[in-house]
Write a protein that binds this DNA or RNA. Structure first.
Lengths: 193, 193
DNA sequence: CTGCGAGTATACCGACCGGTGTGGTTACCT
DNA sequence: AGGTAACCACACCGGTCGGTATACTCGCAG
């Protein structure tokens, strides 16, 4: 049986294009990076890019989808390794975020950055960003239910999560995710409004 | 005595340019908006813009500085109106954020957005963004000292603050600032690590 | 009356933008 | 052997980018 990946199969050149674009978009910004630069950097002609992806908008969306996919995989993997204790699993999301941030997130959340750059409300990339946050909120809601904790905590957990990413990038708080973890730990002992 | 504003005096046309640029930069993004568009929208020729501001980099920096100035003024004003109780003053920062977000922050924090777009680490606009976060962190540190609360809370308060802005914009939590306020209220009763 | 700062209008610069078209070369599949 | 998907090289499109140049008008202060 074929692997039920949601990602479409990519030709070798398309793979290189997507990887190159992902790196350039994240480190330099989406609008700044032109298709010619991506083509050069990937060792590919623009023709190939447009044959595979159709438009810059599609390429941007593919980049965001791939990154979202990688992040969800990272998070769920760490969650699986966190053991059965429901409360520990909630806190493990912040450990996962800390590892992710340390590894490759020196420029903040790619979804938030893309959301800032893609001002056109019809850009499909915006929906990818929105859905990631929706998914994370739903994840927290589920984890809270497993821990028999009030669902009203979910908003706060999400705020701590997003705040940690931003604070690590633009304020100089490299360990913000761990700070958020501690705060979440203490908050879960209190009663939400 | 002349008013001791840090802002340089602007000619009427320069004022219009800065206001127009501020609106366009915030709503559509910095890189996307060209100087021709700003000139048209402000009813001014490009010549005038370059006579007054010298370069796009300078105009962007002026935009960020002006916005930062407005935000600090907004926050300190609300803080002054919050009364003398030190703990209430801490929580008042979130009320101020909520009012600010409601009024004009539908597209997230301008500093964070700019930080995402200005990938060149030497761009002076980045320093404006960094300084705003540094200032806010220092403010929280001061307010905590006034309230005889541990300074270790400052990081968490900043994280809640930044997270509320992001969550309100890209996750659909319009009242995130109030949620952050409640969380801060409960957290201040706990002991930080 | 004169000089100057502020502003307008218009045209221009080279470089780059996203996107298209033509034609040719591999390599694999049947 | 023939077909096709993948890719390359290259040239081109209209439009916009940040930035500059020239030349002119206006109001105002000395």
């Amino acid at each position: 049986m074929a692997p039920a990946t949601t990602e479409p199969r990519l030709t070798p050149a398309a793979r290189r294009v997507l990887d190159t674009a992902a790196h350039l978009f994240y480190t330099r910004g989406i609008t700044t990076v032109g298709m010619d630069l991506i083509a050069d950097e990937a060792g590919v002609t623009k023709k190939t890019i447009y044959d595979r992806f159709g438009s810059k908008q599609n390429l941007v969306t593919a980049y965001l989808r791939a990154r979202d996919h990688r992040w969800r995989h990272h998070l769920t993997t760490r969650l699986d390794a966190a053991g059965p204790d429901p409360r520990a699993r909630i806190l493990a999301t912040y450990d996962a975020l800390h590892a992710w941030t340390r590894a490759e997130n020196t420029r903040g959340c790619a979804m938030v950055n893309a959301y800032a750059e893609l001002s056109d409300p019809d850009h499909p990339g915006r929906r990818v960003a929105e859905e990631q946050k929706t998914w994370l909120h739903a994840l927290y809601t589920r984890l809270l239910a497993d821990a028999a904790l009030p669902a009203a905590h979910a908003d706060t957990l999400l705020i701590l999560h997003e705040g940690a990413v931003t604070a690590a990038a633009v304020a100089a708080l490299p360990d913000a995710a761990l700070t958020a973890r501690d705060a979440a730990d203490r908050l879960l002992g209190t009663t939400p409004p």
